[in-house]
Amino acid sequence: MRLDDTVGDSYDNAMAESADGAYETELVWRRKLFADLAELELATFRWVSWWNSKRRHQSLGYRTPEQIETEYYASRLTIKGEQKSGHSNSPPNTTVKPRS
């Protein structure tokens, strides 16, 4: 098997190429030249921070990763609170076990 024929595994770098293309298009080619390497590094850091936290993702229902993470942890706190108090919004278990 040739490495360039694989899809969906560690040899498939389509996602990385997509992110690299977006980086070049959105940051590098849309602005004036960078004064020095430090300016490029800072701009890259800011772009990556935006890409990983603020950018709306189609696969997340056009929500940001921060929104998804906030919702996840809020739901985990609700579940833990229900477990501690013994209360739940779920209906009680009404399954009857057969006698042996």
Rank of each mutant, 00 (worst) to 15 (best):
L33E: 15
R99H: 07
K84M: 12
T78R: 12
L27F: 05
L60G: 07
Y73E: 07
E71H: 06
D12C: 06
R55K: 12
G21H: 00
W47E: 14
A22Q: 06
L60I: 02
E39W: 03
L37F: 13
T6W: 04
G81F: 04
R31E: 09
F45H: 08
T64L: 04
S75K: 13
A38F: 03
D12V: 01
W29S: 10
S85F: 11
S100M: 08
T78H: 11
Q83T: 03
I68Q: 11
G8F: 01
L42R: 13
A38Q: 14
G81H: 11
G61A: 08
D4E: 14
L40H: 10
K80S: 14
K32S: 11
S100W: 09
K84R: 14
K32N: 13
W47Q: 12
K32E: 10
Q58P: 02
A19T: 00
L33P: 04
R63P: 00
A74M: 10
P92E: 14
I68S: 14
R55Y: 05
H87F: 11
S88K: 09
K84L: 15
A43K: 06
A14K: 10
P98E: 15
T25H: 12
T25P: 00
A74F: 13
H87T: 05
Y11W: 08
S85I: 03
R99S: 08
A74I: 07
A16G: 03
E66R: 08
R30G: 02
S59C: 15
W29R: 11
K97L: 08
T70H: 14
S53Q: 09
T64G: 03
L37S: 14
K84Y: 14
W29D: 10
K54A: 15
R46L: 03
L33K: 15
T25E: 09
E24L: 06
E82R: 13
S85Q: 12
D12H: 02
W50F: 09
Y11P: 00
R56T: 04
Q67W: 10
L40N: 06
T44V: 03
S90N: 06
G8C: 01
Y62M: 13
L27E: 13
R46P: 00
E82S: 14
N93C: 06
V28N: 02
A35I: 05
R31F: 02
M15R: 15
R46W: 02
A35R: 13
L33T: 15
Y11M: 08
E24W: 04
S49L: 06
Q67F: 08
L3N: 11
H87I: 05
D36W: 12
T94V: 03
S88T: 12
M15H: 13
M15L: 11
R55D: 11
K32Q: 10
T70I: 08
R99Q: 12
I79W: 15
K97I: 05
T25I: 02
G61H: 14
A74Y: 10
G21K: 05
S100N: 11
E66L: 11
H57Q: 09
K80R: 14
R46N: 03
S10M: 04
A16M: 04
P91D: 04
